[in-house]
Design a protein around this nucleic acid. Structure first.
Lengths: 347, 347
DNA sequence: CTGAAAGCGCTTACAG
DNA sequence: CTGAAAGCGCTTACAG
């Protein structure tokens, strides 16, 4: 019966190549060339085509193009969470670098959960992503095998490893934490407490913890008097600090898994009347805005987010273009000494 | 070294519906149905098909599907910048809500530039986005017309207006700023300085400024003694504060366009020996992490980022499904009084 | 419940 | 420099 075709009224369906072809009086092939390989088309023809395109406000259908060329110009990124300054500017830089090459960014978040990450990977790939940005190296073998089996080009950031067959644009979390800890020890601290990030399934967190441990073990007379883990939030940092205090281990410094935890510790210390850094030093990691907004400002590790994001994009584009994995790049981190760290006070 | 580069052997191109059809001994049509409308297919057939799918690890080609159905299940979002906690958790919530419906998020940033925003809109649309999330209402007529002409479903967030024919999921920045200012005035302040965000092309910033002005003008004896604009960064906030001080207008409170500016002001005030809040009160806007990490914690306006993001996603999905614009939703904001605001001190 | 076939809007050898 | 035509991998009336 075919009743009143519903909602199709707005369906003055977008102009297609065919429409342009009709108007410009050429074949669709020529228009396609005129758009993608202009110099293969005669000047006059090109002008005529351009006029038709303008007149119709023609805009190519992306899926048709992808289907025909098998290339989407979309990169997918799966990050633990967008709601954390820790990844924000790196991701921003990644996106900007991609945009310069006309590539778009599909973003998904895993919530630090590897099953979720796997589902997102599948989804992004199903939606045609040409390549992926992944955070960290700690993931189930099954995920790795999936990636391998499909031959998916991906780059890993926020960490660095020499793993054969994987592309990295990141930094060595363990080394960075070790260096920070050495600086803390050099400042005179012998009783160190560590509030690490949650290490399960998170290589950045566990490597930072490992780095602290290593630096401590290098020096006799220096002890790791407490070690707890906390999520990356102000309140979790504060709560972890309470636990450390309750243990009665009397640290002179608290090394924190990141700046947010450190800021939470600072808050709590202030609340219970512990002076930082006179009575207790505190350090962070990441050097996000927060680090210089708190009082005292945080001694922390500066992570080259912008360069890392930009580089990750560059490597991935190169990989896609040459069908060959470029060399990984390792970024150096920098220790930034600020007011939250001083020599240990007297008891 | 392993010159035997096997990576091109990969071209065992992904299995297609046709492959599955051959293996399961049915037509591609039936498989398509089995996937998309299972109950239209006999149980036995369905099982056979599932086996074939599993065996081949078949995964549908997205572009082909989009081309055939004219629906991408991709939503695009264009935000000023990802590198700002202000948008981060709202965007995160938006993405999560979308993901629950199997919809993916394509993210682009405009850098607070309307030309750039327009280019991103075109790009996202060209890449097949079914709908868009836009931040704020202040944009060139040409952009609006473009959106209108293509009949693009979009939702605007982070602000709220009653504009006919536009879908909003946001809050009234002017009202929020007005209410905050009233609270400041109620606390006893009569000499108010305002460091707003950059208002050009940014309705959130300009409406907040307008709200402050309105509240001030309501009360005789209360003056806006200084008004400068600053970008949303700690350093810009600090620099703006310097300008205000240099003007010599002696405010007893500084109302800031957002928390980051306020934190910058706090820093600078501390640096030059001005006690907050004893000698000077300071307020922020947004209530991001930073607000409670600084000392004193910021009196600010709590923006319902999570609900706003979730709601924006819901409205947009509804819009796409029903081909009909749902009603906009306005969120209320809440004033959070914290230590950075007190009664004005004595000179 | 299932299949044959047209169609979605591009690109790209292949000829000319 | 340009065109005719096949093909990319799905979906969906239309028949049966």
């Amino acid at each position: 019966m075919a009743p009143a075709t519903p909602q199709q009224t707005n369906k003055r369906s977008k102009p297609t190549l065919e429409d342009v072809a009709a108007l410009a009086n050429v074949s669709t092939a020529t228009i396609s060339r005129s758009i993608n390989e202009p110099d293969k088309v005669a000047r006059a023809t090109r002008d005529r085509i351009q006029q038709a395109i303008d007149k119709l406000a023609y805009t190519p259908n992306f899926s048709a193009k992808v289907l025909a060329t098998n290339k989407s110009n979309i990169i997918g990124a799966i990050i633990p969470t967008m709601a954390n300054a820790m990844f924000a500017s790196g991701l921003q830089a990644f996106q900007e670098a991609l945009a310069e090459s006309g590539v778009l960014l599909l973003v998904a978040s895993s919530g630090y959960n590897s099953d979720s990450e796997f589902r997102q990977i599948q989804s992004l790939l199903a939606h045609g992503a040409d390549g992926l940005l992944l955070i960290g190296s700690d993931r189930p073998r099954s995920t790795l095998e999936y990636l391998q089996a499909r031959n998916v080009p991906y780059v890993i950031s926020w960490c660095y490893k020499k793993t054969k067959g994987q592309l990295y644009a990141g930094f060595d979390n363990k080394k960075a934490a070790r260096n920070l800890t050495r600086a803390v020890i050099n400042a005179g601290h012998k009783r160190i407490a560590l509030i690490g990030g949650v290490s399960a399934g998170n290589d950045r967190a566990s490597n930072r913890i490992a780095g602290v441990k290593q630096a401590v073990s290098e020096q006799r007379g220096v002890d790791l008097v407490a070690l707890v883990e906390a999520e990356y939030s102000l309140s979790a940092g504060a709560a972890a600090f309470d636990r450390v205090i309750a243990e009665g281990s009397k640290p002179t410094v608290i090394i924190c898994g990141n700046d947010v935890i450190a800021a939470g510790v600072l808050n709590r210390a202030k609340a219970i009347g512990i002076n930082v850094p006179a009575a207790l030093s505190v350090t962070g990691f990441d050097d996000i805005n927060l680090a210089t907004a708190v009082d005292p400002p945080l001694t922390t590790v500066r992570v080259p987010q912008l360069n890392m994001g930009k580089s990750a994009a560059g490597l991935l584009m190169e990989y896609l273009e040459n069908k060959q994995m470029p060399a990984s790049v390792e970024f150096e981190t920098e220790i930034v000494i600020r007011g939250s760290l001083s020599a240990p006070g007297v008891d």
